[in-house]
Design a protein around this nucleic acid. Structure first.
Lengths: 217, 217
DNA sequence: TTCACAATTTAGATAAGTCTAAATTTTTTA
DNA sequence: TAAAAAATTTAGACTTATCTAAATTGTGAA
């Protein structure tokens, strides 16, 4: 098995590489609140174990076996979050740190039984998809935000229009991949939409933008 | 908070000191599958934190704050075991190692909610009492084995006759404090009893012995 | 295209927890 | 009660994961 530190590195690399490309040492250091030199050390160790592809100064990506471990940890994290909210009645904003500890409980059988006990939930309390016991995510049919109804929520998962002007606009609005959004208001006359991002800040986007921003769930 | 290693030492010391007196370095080393020298190092550390009373060569006992931590870990362990058996349908002999990991999940609120979710169970799947959120064990009224009926089970928790000959006899039969027993047979003519120890070996004890051996539950 | 700066890696150190081997203390026993 | 045996502690070393400071590599701007 892998150490707690290794698992956390793999998970971070997985999350950071959602925007595909290689992940940089500094990105990982920032995500894990550690120093770049510590990251370098760990990257060598993970590369030795064949869990990442690593060449000096070039950043890293997960190998298939590294990816498998990362997905398994994410599955555990999300199932425990679901448990904490649905069974123990925690609020969705209280569960992250607890799940951060629980995701390292090693037994796969335990997590599969927990999955069954909760009747195979598809999404965690934050709307993130929960991978199944084979590591497959539900083929999330992405929908444009414009197809959502009032109070629907989802996770930003893609864009239709890939021009850099649109992407730059999204970046500025903090409407980036992985963020969860909720439809707060739909303006009838121009079909523009008010979204709440990560349960915090609200933004108002045009019908055209809503047509081109894809969400999962 | 305390490290995982510290928590495991405190738990071991707690369990080993059930027979009251001071616990020896070698006893702890045996329980934790480590070396006596490692134990000595840790004892110094725990003594510095005022969690144990320690004088060189004299063994250790828990201070009130050390005891409090140990009981809290035991509470977590037993509640998780109960969860695994009652909610996830594991067998009682499968859950120990998993609970060994889960007992280190730090949140007290989590464990209190889990306790409530399961409706405040009094005993874990092995019949051990579960301390409440204040660390109090249900005042387990001890019964002599002779008062049990067929198929009843319990955990050996004390003796009436404290002569060393009786204690030595119990030691030899492996009928020691903490072992769980089940009544397999009661011989009508002499009231002797056949017990199964820890779901394994069976022993046959006299009416007199059964009268003097106390179990909880 | 070169140079300055940013990113990354290396070198050397630290803390936790463990180990082996040697030294010390306690206990047993003759 | 003194020597032998057992238990315990100390000394010194190792591993993991981290850090700071210095060295190296890559890259963007002039």
């Amino acid at each position: 098995m892998n150490t707690l530190a290794e698992e956390n590195y793999l998970k971070s690399i997985y999350h950071l590489s959602m925007g595909d490309e290689n992940v940089s040492t500094n990105q990982i250091a920032a995500a894990l609140n550690t120093k770049a030199s510590s990251v370098t050390d760990m990257l060598k160790k993970l590369a030795d174990k064949a869990l990442i592809n690593y060449t000096r100064y070039q950043g890293v990506s997960l190998t298939p076996s590294g990816q498998k471990i990362a997905v398994s940890i994410i599955r555990k994290h999300r199932l425990w979050e679901y448990f904490l909210v649905e069974k123990l009645n925690f609020r969705w904003d209280q569960v992250h740190d607890m799940a951060e500890e629980m995701e390292h409980i090693s037994s796969e059988e335990l997590i599969d039984r927990l999955d069954k006990f909760m009747d195979y939930p598809q999404h965690d309390p934050h709307g993130e998809p929960i991978p199944d016991c084979n590591g497959n995510f539900k083929s999330s049919e992405l929908k444009p935000v414009s197809a959502l109804e009032l109070n629907n929520s989802g996770v930003i998962s893609g864009v239709r229009d890939q021009t850099s002007s649109f992407l730059q606009y999204l970046e500025k609005q903090e409407l980036t991949i992985g963020k969860s959004i909720k439809v707060m208001e739909i303006i009838a006359f121009d079909h523009s939409v008010v979204l709440q991002i990560e349960n915090k800040k609200e933004v108002h986007i045009s019908r055209e933008a809503a047509n081109n921003l894809l969400v999962a769930l």
